[in-house]
């Protein structure tokens, strides 16, 4: 038996000299390195550059590197930036609230009233189709509906309900929030559904067996259990609504210059890249915070869109 350790050592020398852990590490590197490099070059570095720009300033169309928080202070104190951020946040919040309100009944029906797996899958596709349908077309559609010669106005006019087109319908806050709500509702549905789906039938049956009415079951079982999904959906809806810039340009009024329009303007017109970058940094930070806030809920609601 004394020969065993020697032989073992010999076989270890023969066997490529790699321990199991080393082999695992090598395989991991094989899979992870290319994407990690890609993310580093095309995400991390650009974000760092953005950060770098945001800390500097422009002088006579030339960029001067600096480490100053001046741009950030400007965003939160100088008009119009501060009020635009506030307004964007309000729009995002309204979008999140309205999307959730519209989404809940659909998610509820899908999770509690549809019995066959096939029907639920069909419904799933039905909900996700508008989500992936062309964004521009969706915004455009509302423009044709709400415009002064659009469907609503021409319908009401021909019915004689109004004598001249309702102007507030389009190019207003109303149309921006409506369009954003329309665009993000499918996401909210799937987010809430993912959570409702997990409520075991037996739990509802137990509540009913204990004498709870439908309203009590909803109020005391279903609603509390669906909150993580509502929250996860709300956070993402808010974040996307907050950062949307196309809808305000196409259906918003002149005062609806939302945050990204400013980014665009800064890049395209005044070329004040440091300030634009600072706005970008604020949004990335906000998204990261929101993602973390939603993280605890995310563990239970894994929405795939």
């Amino acid at each position: 038996m004394t020969a065993v350790p020697e032989r073992a050592a010999a076989s270890r020398r023969r066997g490529a000299g790699l321990s199991a852990q080393a082999r695992d590490r090598r395989r991991l590197t094989l899979w992870l390195l290319p994407p990690a490099l890609w993310f580093f070059v095309f995400m991390i570095i650009p974000y760092l550059i953005m950060l770098h720009y945001s800390l500097g300033r422009m002088d006579d169309l030339r960029f001067i590197p600096d480490i100053s928080l001046g741009n950030f202070v400007k965003i939160f104190t100088v008009e119009p930036y501060a009020s635009v951020i506030l307004q964007s946040a309000q729009n995002g919040l309204m979008t999140a609230v309205f999307s959730t309100l519209l989404a809940y009944p659909v998610a509820l029906v899908m999770a509690l009233h549809m019995k066959s797996e096939r029907a639920r899958f069909f419904m799933h596709i039905l909900i996700i189709l508008p989500w992936w349908a062309s964004y521009l077309v969706k915004v455009y559609a509302w423009r044709t509906i709400l415009g002064s010669s659009g469907l609503v106005n021409s319908g009401l006019l021909s019915l004689g309900a109004i004598s001249e087109p309702l102007e507030f319908l389009l190019y207003s806050r109303f149309s921006v929030v409506l369009t954003l709500t329309y665009i993000f509702t499918p996401f909210a549905i799937l987010s809430i559904y993912a959570q409702l789906e997990r409520i075991p039938t037996s739990l509802i049956e137990a509540a009913r067996n204990l004498g709870a009415s439908d309203w009590e079951i909803f109020r005391r079982v279903i609603l509390p259990m669906s909150l993580p999904g509502v929250l996860a959906g709300g956070v993402i809806t808010f974040s996307l609504g907050f950062g949307d810039f196309v809808a305000p340009v196409l259906v918003g009024g002149p005062e609806d210059l939302m945050i990204n329009n400013i980014v665009i303007n800064l890049l395209g017109v005044s070329l004040d890249r440091p300030l634009g970058s600072a706005i970008g940094v604020v949004i990335v930070a906000l998204a990261a915070v929101l993602l973390t806030v939603a993280n605890w809920a995310e563990r239970r609601t894994q929405v795939r869109v």
């Binding site: 509820l108 029906v109 509690l112 455009y140 559609a141 329309y182 509702t185 039938t201 509802i204």
Partner: peptide, 28 residues
């Protein structure tokens, strides 16, 4: 039984939302 709430009411609410999602595209 998993159903909660009146099926007629729930389905019509859900149906209205689905119509909201599809009508604008359908109009285009």
């Amino acid at each position: 039984m998993r159903q909660v709430g009146s099926p007629a009411l729930m389905w019509s609410l859900a149906g209205a939302v689905m119509a909201f999602l599809y009508l604008p595209i359908a109009l285009v």
